[in-house]
């Protein structure tokens, strides 16, 4: 039971990172982006490439960091991957979403994102192959925190959780304490009013995509660390990430954090009541439950 809770928080941290980016994008651009989860794949694969590159160029980075399975090379690769993924997100917006947006059909963007997701997923499959890959083949054994009840965690997962909390806290500070953060929020609330007040809308949109892509890249790398990397990461994560976003409420950073944890924990606890065959249904059931009780999510504001 307690183990399920802890497992849920650990997978939840990854969903939180994905959901934080998605919630900002959905809040500002007002469409359900079905391609957001594909950014996690882009992040994971570009980190894989950069890691190999750094290891080859700077062999001393091939060592692992303390008890983690992550190498120094991967740590640097992760940052490079955040930049690449953020840039890809901006590029997709420029090539596709911006143009569809300008035609004035919000919901066409939903379908455009559907199409984009398909393109990204299959191009990755073509380039990297369909088989799964790992950052590290070593198996890091879990540390036993308690024997009765049995509680075990992996060092990697603690690191993932800590970094997630840190990043989300930092993001929150930026959004709530800096002028830039105010501007971002103003645009999300009311784009025309914000523009009247001299905020550069285009720049704000680029910023949101950069943040969303960067966080997605982190989530993708963390997912690869604790699981496996495959071209279908996006397909597998799209519904849980949406669920975390909706549960938290659009536009709320802390909501997304909490939403990720809730979805992760619920998916783990569900196994104690539902047969395991039904686990793919859990994210949808959470979405439904939250929307029936709080149509705007836990922290979302009402908005038409």
């Amino acid at each position: 039971m307690i183990q399920h809770l802890i497992d849920g928080i650990l997978i939840g941290a990854i969903l939180s990172l994905g959901a934080t980016g998605l919630t900002m994008v959905m809040h500002m651009l007002r469409f359900a982006n079905f391609s957001h989860a594909e950014l996690l794949s882009i992040g994971a694969y570009s980190a894989l490439v950069f890691e190999q590159l750094f290891k080859a160029v700077l062999p001393f980075t091939a060592g692992t960091i303390g008890p983690l399975s992550m190498t120094w090379a991967l740590a640097v690769a992760m940052i490079a991957s955040m930049a690449v993924t953020g840039a890809s997100a901006v590029l997709f917006d420029k090539l596709i979403f911006k143009r569809v947006r300008e035609k004035g059909e919000e919901l066409s963007m939903v379908f455009a994102s559907f199409g984009l997701a398909l393109i990204i997923r299959n191009v990755i499959g073509l380039v990297f192959g369909l088989q799964t890959q790992l950052f590290s083949k070593d198996i890091i054994f879990a540390t036993v925190l308690s024997r009765d009840p049995l509680i075990m965690v992996k060092p990697d997962q603690i690191a993932v959780l800590a970094i997630t909390l840190l990043i989300i806290f930092a993001l929150h500070l930026i959004l709530s304490r800096t002028t830039y953060g105010y501007a971002l929020r103003a645009v999300a609330e009311n784009p025309s009013l914000a523009q009247v007040n001299g905020i550069n809308l285009q720049r704000m949109i680029v910023t949101v995509w950069l943040i969303g892509g960067g966080l997605a890249a982190l989530a993708g790398v963390f997912y690869g660390l604790t699981n496996q990397i495959s071209p279908v990461i996006g397909r597998d994560l799209v519904l849980p990430v949406f669920a975390a976003t909706i549960v938290g409420g659009l536009g709320s950073i802390y909501g997304a954090l909490l939403g990720g944890f809730i979805v992760g924990i619920a998916a783990n606890l569900a196994l104690t009541v539902l047969p395991s065959g039904y686990s793919p249904s859990v994210p949808f059931l959470i979405i439904l439950a939250v929307l029936l009780v709080r149509p705007h999510g836990l922290f979302g504001e009402e908005r038409q």
Partner: peptide, 20 residues
């Protein structure tokens, strides 16, 4: 006796269940 679905984000819960 645990069913494993394709393409789940994590199999941690199933593994924990089996190990318990």
């Amino acid at each position: 006796l645990i069913a494993i679905n394709d393409g789940q984000p994590s199999y941690r819960a199933e593994v924990t269940e089996a190990i318990s």
